[in-house]
Design a protein around this nucleic acid. Structure first.
Length: 458
DNA sequence: TTGCCAATAT
DNA sequence: AATATTGGCA
């Protein structure tokens, strides 16, 4: 994606036509007509499309340009390769999410594909709603794409899980901890939990479970810092502002320490960048930055307090929410190259959060469109049952917010927008404009994710 | 004492 | 990797 293309994105509220921006999909489909239509449909949502009509071509493209591709869509019946062979090969080459589509509605075939590593199975004819949210699949971590079951009624499995304790106990609490059964939530419960453990004496019952910094908690933490300012943000004050019962100062301290560390890295990266040339391969940076280093979780960190949709409702502890939401609503959110939020109050901007998805890696996503066959909700039941029977399916999830540590990516993607300096900034600087457009797009996606009426897979 | 923080432990 | 604990310092 070139910067011009990026800038041409028109960002409108609740406008889904930009959702796919920054995501390139490799579509492998032997039927030219189908390929054309699908491409068009994808492009309508802003996706970029690379096509291949043969499996061998696809593999070639993948070999050459995996970096530029964020998602792979494969038709099941390709003339030049055996059914499952291609997905196996692709899997071996790449960890990119694979979406399989077919006119075949055979359940065991679907399961076969999912088991082989497909992230999603779509049935032809593919409709707009089928592809609208494909971008979400690219927000998962690149590494393990693991098939797992979707819990019955929820596209928001990950989010719902976060505060499962609140729901089950009926006592809303922001604190979730490891080791407690509530984290397991609706899962298998007992069974193997007790079997293979442990060297643990029963005497250690006393040990307190570790605090888990859920996104909700983290958001409050961030909010507190926004209010207090980076300088005034000390554990005790933060604790007060967070107003979470049971949370200890030590908890906050520890988190703060990590938080500051992340800020420092961020700053270091900034400095290095500023010494360097200003726009080293802007194109690649934008694309890579989008698909690989942003994620739903990070969006959730933005201005949580105002939301009233279902998920949010039970995510939020009634007791303390009011203390946060009122006076200091976020007016604007900046985002730097890799997803670090920089909320600004007036002219001053301060760096804030960076998080990872806390969602479970959902192997099957379905759209909710009743019109045509994708794996609709009904179909999903079947799939789910099957999935739950097999022991091979596991739920691999990363929970809680994570600060971004130092990484290669940090160096690869220099800050486009320098920290506020004594001098006035050059406003005509192109990178800044690009950053702006990008920010707006991210905010737009954020709004999309926040809208309870939209389909969310993650 | 208390709070903070960096280092260190788990 | 994420969180908890410790010990020095104001």
């Amino acid at each position: 994606m070139t910067s011009e293309q990026f800038l041409s994105v028109e960002v409108t509220k609740n406008n889904a036509s930009s959702l796919g921006k920054g995501v390139r999909i490799l579509v492998v489909e032997s039927d030219p007509t189908c390929l054309r239509i699908l491409s068009k449909m994808l492009q309508a949502f802003g996706y970029e499309v690379t096509t291949a009509t043969r499996a061998t071509d696809a593999l070639h493209i993948l070999r050459e340009k995996e970096d530029e591709i964020n998602l792979i869509m494969i038709e099941t019946h390709l003339p030049d390769m055996d059914q499952y062979e291609i997905i196996g090969t692709v899997r071996a080459m790449s960890s990119l999410p694979i979406v399989v589509f077919s006119a075949d509605n055979n359940v065991s075939a679907m399961l076969g594909w999912l088991y082989k590593g497909a992230a999603l199975y779509l049935m032809k004819p593919i409709v707009k709603n089928d592809v609208k949210n494909l971008w979400q699949l690219t927000y998962r971590k690149k590494k393990k794409i693991t098939v797992s079951s979707v819990r019955s009624n929820s596209f928001h499995a990950g989010l719902a899980e976060e505060n499962a304790s609140s729901v089950t106990t009926g006592i809303p609490s922001l604190l979730s901890t490891t080791g407690q059964s509530d984290q397991m939530g609706k899962r298998k419960e007992l069974e193997e939990t007790d079997i293979d453990d442990e060297d643990n004496d029963n005497l250690t019952v006393l040990k307190k479970p570790e605090l888990v910094w859920t996104n909700e908690l983290h958001n409050r933490f961030l909010q507190a810092i926004r209010i207090l300012g980076v300088d005034g943000a000390h554990p005790k004050k933060i604790l007060q502002h967070m107003n979470v019962s049971g949370l200890k100062k030590e908890n906050v301290s520890s988190h703060l320490q990590k938080y500051r560390l992340s800020l420092k890295w961020e700053q270091d990266a900034t400095q290095k960048t500023m010494i360097r040339d200003h726009h080293p391969s802007l194109t690649l940076n934008l694309q890579g930055g989008f698909s690989q280093f942003t994620n739903p979780q990070f969006f959730m960190a933005i201005s949580q307090s105002e939301h009233t949709n279902n998920i949010q409702n039970y995510l939020c502890s009634p007791a303390s929410m009011h203390s946060l939401g009122s006076a200091h609503s976020l007016t604007r959110v900046n985002t730097n190259y890799d997803g670090m939020l920089i909320p600004s109050y007036g002219q001053q901007s301060k760096q804030l959060d960076r998080t990872y998805p806390n969602c479970s890696h959902t192997g099957i996503g379905t759209t909710n469109d009743g019109n045509f066959a994708s794996l609709g909700q009904k179909g999903n039941h079947n799939v789910e049952e099957h999935l739950n029977q097999g022991t091979t399916f596991s739920n691999v999830g990363t929970h809680g917010p994570t600060f971004l540590g130092r990484s290669q990516q940090q160096l690869q993607f220099p800050l486009l927008q320098p920290q506020p300096l004594p001098e006035k900034e050059d406003e005509s600087d192109i990178p800044n404009i690009v950053t702006e457009a990008r920010n707006e797009l991210l905010v737009m996606k954020n709004e999309f994710l926040d809208d309870p009426n939209n389909d969310l897979w993650l």
